[in-house]
């Protein structure tokens, strides 16, 4: 009843819309979120290793370990999600033509992201960042923006591909 009244009022006066977007609107895509998530995975793996090297864990250490594992897995999933969105929504035939190997690259990101969730090998985190950097390079190539690689100025101090802007 109320809905029908509002619906007819809307037809006449057109209420303003409040957006509940299911995706990033306006073509805003940026691989930096995936890169930051990959760096977080590495950082979590490093801290897990530090705890492992410590030997016996106190209750506080165990609580920390639980949080580290949880964050590692959450951010590995975030990497997959961010890359999937750019590949699925932004990349179309012209971009596929510009980056011929992108399907295989994205698939490798998915597989390596899953490996990061499944175990605590540091090499997997580094491999994930390497792949995400390659993906970032490919993305900026489609925008005709040059990139450079620099070590991120915070832990885990790993190489990251950045766009040359301005």
């Amino acid at each position: 009843m109320i809905y029908k009244v509002l619906q007819s009022l809307d037809k006449r006066y057109s209420f303003p819309q409040a957006e509940a977007h299911c995706d990033v609107p306006c073509g805003i895509y940026d691989p930096s979120t995936a890169q930051i998530a990959a760096l977080t995975v590495i950082r979590m793996l490093d801290q897990i290793k530090e705890l492992a090297d410590q030997g016996t864990l106190t209750i506080a250490d165990q609580a920390k370990l639980s949080r580290l594992v949880s964050q590692k897995e959450e951010h590995a999933e975030a990497v997959k999600q961010e890359v999937r969105i750019i590949w699925g929504d932004y990349f179309k035939q012209p971009q596929f033509d510009q980056v011929p190997g992108v399907h295989e690259l994205v698939h490798n990101v998915m597989l390596t992201g899953s490996k990061c969730r499944q175990n605590i090998d540091q090499e997997n985190g580094l491999a994930l960042l390497k792949l995400v950097n390659q993906f970032a390079e490919a993305f900026w190539k489609t925008k005709e923006i040059e990139t450079y690689t620099a070590t991120c100025p915070y832990l885990p101090k790993q190489p990251v591909v950045y766009p040359k802007l301005g």
């Binding site: 209420f15 303003p16 409040a18 509940a20």
Partner: peptide, 22 residues
């Protein structure tokens, strides 16, 4: 008071596209 029409499904299940909020 304002009335808004919802567009999009990011607030599902609380709200769906086409719903109204006051």
């Amino acid at each position: 008071i304002g009335i808004f029409k919802i567009h999009g499904e990011s607030m599902h299940p609380a709200l769906s596209s086409g719903d109204f909020v006051v």
